[in-house]
Design a binder for these strands. Sequence first.
DNA 1: CTTATTCTATACCTATAAGTACAGAATAAA
DNA 2: TTTATTCTGTACTTATAGGTATAGAATAAG
Lengths: 191, 191
Amino acid sequence: MARPRSFDPDDVLEIARQVFWQKGFQATSLDEITAASGIAKPSLYAAFGDKHALFLRVLDRYHDGILGWAERVLAQPGPAREAIRQWLTGFIPYCSGEKGQRGCLSINSATDGSLDQAALRKSIERYNRRLEELLRSRLRADRDQFRKGFDPDVTAHTVMVVHAGLMALAHQTPDSKQVMAVIDQVMSLLA
Amino acid sequence: MARPRSFDPDDVLEIARQVFWQKGFQATSLDEITAASGIAKPSLYAAFGDKHALFLRVLDRYHDGILGWAERVLAQPGPAREAIRQWLTGFIPYCSGEKGQRGCLSINSATDGSLDQAALRKSIERYNRRLEELLRSRLRADRDQFRKGFDPDVTAHTVMVVHAGLMALAHQTPDSKQVMAVIDQVMSLLA
DNA sequence: CTTATTCTATACCTATAAGTACAGAATAAA
DNA sequence: TTTATTCTGTACTTATAGGTATAGAATAAG
């Protein structure tokens, strides 16, 4: 019974993600998002709220995407080590070569001291917790594939640390072969 | 033959480091630095140049501090593994517990998309290169302590990745015991 | 003591960016 | 077609923050 919205909010979130991912939260102005999306500020505010709320939506959406993909990859049959190796290698395009500059939106945000906002911290914590939970349950389920004394909980966290490290060092765009060698070496812990 | 400077530049850099470290480059205003240091803006500009130049000085100073400490720790006699373990555990106060929120100034800066400035990237790259070089040369020197086929170059990079990961995840303030467990597990690669 | 010179502090300028008022456009119901 | 309602776009307000002009303070040389 009134004028309908002229844009798909998800399209705008996708565009906003690209801009935020490239420049970071602080350095991204709403004018850049309006320019990239073609949507004027009042429409953005009506649809998403202020800049923090928009970023939170973008980040949640990003998290959901990675979690969904991780669920699929880690549910694969076969050795747990190969599933986890595949999960880690899936990030190579984002932590080496041309796209490497960007790294991980979540980790970039986590290390941004200016984003000390309760809602954002919570989103990032929840994401990390769920990701680690996926790794841990897979390692626990396949416990008998590993040596005696293998600790799936510590190993899950170690894999999280390695993942975070690769993404944090992504901004130097290391060689993908070097990344692969590190992953191979770490995977030797899963034995 | 004129009025001398009323402050020690190094003191100001130390204070600026604290503020930048806590809030990040973008979110730190020069007014906050003047408030924390008691030095007015014109004096800061005369001594250090603009905000980017000041931050670069702060970051270089931070890098030098860590590199100097790393040189000392990694020059220790005894097993290379123990020297490297000690180096990693030295970061625990900054990646767990109360101070964990801060993480590493260099990594926080590296993941900040808004700091895509040539000079800053160069400083960070040089720092990472020198740090990895310290690890690599120690591992190479003690090569005969390790199994056949041990690769000191890949291992040095793996240690760098783990270090970066611990610091990137610092903002969730994990338990120091969990950090210790990860370090122990990774150290098992140095055998 | 005078003076040249450099530093310091107040106050200001300017640009940018977050957020909004308001008028006009578009649509569904009557 | 009319009308109520919601969306869109221009233009504005306001605050903040980087950077600086300028006047006055402090010091070493003469």
